[in-house]
Amino acid sequence: MWYVYILESVDSPEQQYTGLTSDLRQRLADHNAGKSTHTAKFAPWTLLWYSAFSDKHRALEFETYLKSHSGRAFAKKRLV
């Protein structure tokens, strides 16, 4: 399975991060351990939302959409 997820910074709730992984628990642990340069400065993170996909290509397409302007608006209105 592939997971598209949205994280929220515990200390800076206005900061959110959207990502893709095949191991959601490990990826969240990596974000909170500072192993991602993009998210390290806003750690710790909490999981706000995720969706599972059986197809990596479809998951990647959805992640790309959520990172777009209209995708961010959709996520804010419908997902989180």
Rank of each mutant, 00 (worst) to 15 (best):
T39E: 03
K35H: 10
A40R: 15
F42H: 15
E61V: 10
Q16D: 09
A29F: 00
K76P: 01
M1P: 10
E63P: 06
K41I: 10
D55L: 09
V4G: 02
R58P: 04
R78D: 10
L60G: 10
W49D: 11
Q16K: 15
L79Q: 07
I6S: 07
L7I: 04
K56H: 14
R72G: 12
A73L: 14
E14R: 05
Q16N: 13
K41A: 15
K35E: 09
R25P: 05
L47K: 03
V80M: 13
T64R: 14
I6V: 15
W45H: 02
F62P: 04
L60H: 09
S70M: 10
E14H: 11
A73P: 07
S22F: 04
H57F: 10
T21L: 01
H57E: 13
V80I: 15
K56Y: 13
F42Q: 09
D55A: 14
I6P: 06
F62I: 07
F42C: 09
L60P: 02
N32T: 10
S9E: 04
Q15R: 14
D11R: 09
F53I: 02
A43L: 00
A43C: 05
M1S: 12
S70G: 01
A33I: 00
T18N: 06
Q15H: 15
W45L: 01
H69S: 14
K77M: 11
R58V: 12
E61W: 00
V10C: 08
T64V: 04
F74I: 03
Y17M: 02
S68C: 03
F53W: 06
D23A: 09
Y5I: 04
G71S: 04
W2V: 06
D23M: 03
T64P: 01
H38C: 07
S36Y: 13
T18W: 00
S36C: 08
A43Q: 07
K35V: 02
D23N: 13
D55F: 03
R58Q: 14
S9Y: 04
A52N: 05
R78C: 13
E8F: 04
G19N: 02
A59E: 02
V10H: 01
F62L: 09
A75V: 08
S12T: 10
H57I: 11
A52C: 12
S68R: 01
S36N: 12
S68Y: 00
R25F: 06
R58F: 12
Y17S: 11
Q15G: 02
K76F: 11
S9W: 03
Y5E: 07
Q16F: 06
Y5P: 08
H57Q: 13
H69I: 13
V4C: 05
E63C: 04
D11C: 08
L24E: 07
S51M: 13
Y5N: 08
V10K: 08
E14K: 08
H38E: 11
M1W: 01
F62M: 10
K76N: 15
V4H: 00
S54L: 14
L7N: 01
K35P: 03
A29C: 04
H57G: 09
K41N: 15
A29Y: 00
R78N: 15
S22E: 02
L28H: 05
F42M: 11
S36K: 08
F42A: 14
K77D: 14
A73F: 07
V10S: 06
V10I: 10
L48S: 01
L20P: 05
L60K: 10
P44G: 04
L7P: 02
W49F: 12
R78A: 11
E61R: 08
K76H: 15
T64E: 12
S12G: 00
